[in-house]
Write a protein that binds this DNA or RNA. Structure first.
Lengths: 84, 84
DNA sequence: TGGGATTTGTTCGTATGTATC
DNA sequence: TGATACATACGAACAAATCCC
């Protein structure tokens, strides 16, 4: 993963991180029913605070892309059946 | 609770909110040793920012009406014994 | 059975930047 | 200039659920 967070740009960090994770779900780097990195890992990998990580994940949760379970982790949502 | 915050009037929002909460303590809507609504709840209920909520609560803290505890909440101060 | 580690959830504390009036 | 107000960002403490030995 070469995509990084721009700590200086105008785009909020939490939105950049949400975009990054969303892209990883879209391209298969993160797969359905499997956990995404923990908040701690995301904090350290991207050098952001927990607040930023949680805001990013909150966006993905609202979008239905991930499901967070206390004590277990946050998982990529099951694949949505193709709508017709 | 019908009292609302006037977002357009001349009175600062944080002072309106402080007045509102103080009134709720006075009339028993908020009771001693019990938590007042969280910052998040106050933000959403009154449609103001966190900054405004915290400024309002800061006033009540200075007045000794509430006590804030990190990780727990903000509580109406114990009843003051009648002074004689 | 128990206890510690992990992980997400909640809440207040603090600082900075921007915009508006 | 200063006060008001919101958004962003990091921290700290506590709570609850889960996992593992």
């Amino acid at each position: 993963m070469l995509v990084t967070i721009d700590h200086d740009g105008p785009t909020p960090l939490y939105r950049q991180l949400a975009d990054l994770l969303r892209a990883q779900i879209a391209d298969g780097t993160l797969t359905p029913n499997r956990p995404i990195p923990t908040e701690q890992r995301l904090m350290h990998e991207h050098e952001v605070g927990r607040d930023t990580v949680r805001k990013a994940i909150a966006i993905l949760r609202e979008e239905g892309l991930v499901i967070a379970i206390r004590g277990r982790g946050t998982f990529v949502a099951p694949e949505k059946p193709p709508e017709q």
